[in-house]
């Protein structure tokens, strides 16, 4: 029963959203469905947040290994919404937590990737074939084109780097985007027509 209902909801909303593009008079209904989609999307992410909180609370309540870390996660999870009750302006506690704890940690985690990416490149970049050589050379030119030492080594590195990004990179990216576009359109039609049924759930 649920599977049949899921199929009909998918089909009817898929067909409506597809054809509204050609029928501008239904613009109001289209915007309403977009709002519903946004609400569902955020609610499903909230389900994830609630599940995360419950999982860590379970670890704390049973004092299982690493429960102290789970307590820190729960504290962070509760601190932000509680702080937001007293406002989210620039002088608020919420903004202080965001600016002095979340943002520095986030950017440090991403900056850590510089070390790992560099070490992976050192181990992985070997010019064993022409494609591997092209990969190595284009990465080196783009990196050297972005730092002062590159200009000192050869004055034209920035121009070379820009040319690599503007011509062959753009061509390959367009090829990939066209491929993704065609694949996505085909998958969307399969979903609307009920050929792709992975999200319907198991047959009961």
């Amino acid at each position: 029963m649920t599977r049949r209902l899921v199929f009909w909801i998918t089909l009817s909303f898929g067909v409506f959203m597809l054809f509204q593009f050609f029928i501008p008079v239904v613009g109001g209904a289209y915007r309403k469905v977009l709002d519903w989609m946004q609400v569902i999307y955020l609610s499903s992410l909230l389900v994830g947040v609630i599940a995360l909180g419950l999982q860590h609370l379970r670890k704390v309540s049973t004092l299982s290994s690493g429960w102290g870390y789970s307590l820190v996660t729960v504290a962070g999870l509760v601190a932000m919404p509680v702080a937001a009750f007293w406002g989210t302006g620039e002088s608020s506690v919420f903004f202080w937590l965001f600016n002095n704890m979340q943002v520095p940690m986030q950017s440090t985690v991403f900056s850590l990737l510089a070390f790992f990416v560099a070490s992976a490149a050192f181990r992985g970049f070997r010019a064993r074939s022409l494609p591997a050589f092209l990969l190595l050379v284009s990465a080196a030119i783009v990196m050297l084109g972005r730092v002062p030492i590159g200009t000192k080594l050869y004055f034209d590195f920035p121009a070379w780097s820009q040319a690599l990004l503007d011509i062959p990179s753009v061509a390959a990216r367009r090829g990939i985007l066209i491929g993704i576009g065609l694949g996505s359109v085909a998958t969307s039609l399969r979903v609307i027509l009920g050929i792709e049924r992975g999200f319907f759930g198991r047959k009961v």
Partner: peptide, 21 residues
Amino acid sequence: SRIPLALIIGAGAGVAVPALL
């Protein structure tokens, strides 16, 4: 919970076709 998911997936697929084209 599959009902709202069906709505978001169906409507998302419908919006995606003309937008991606």
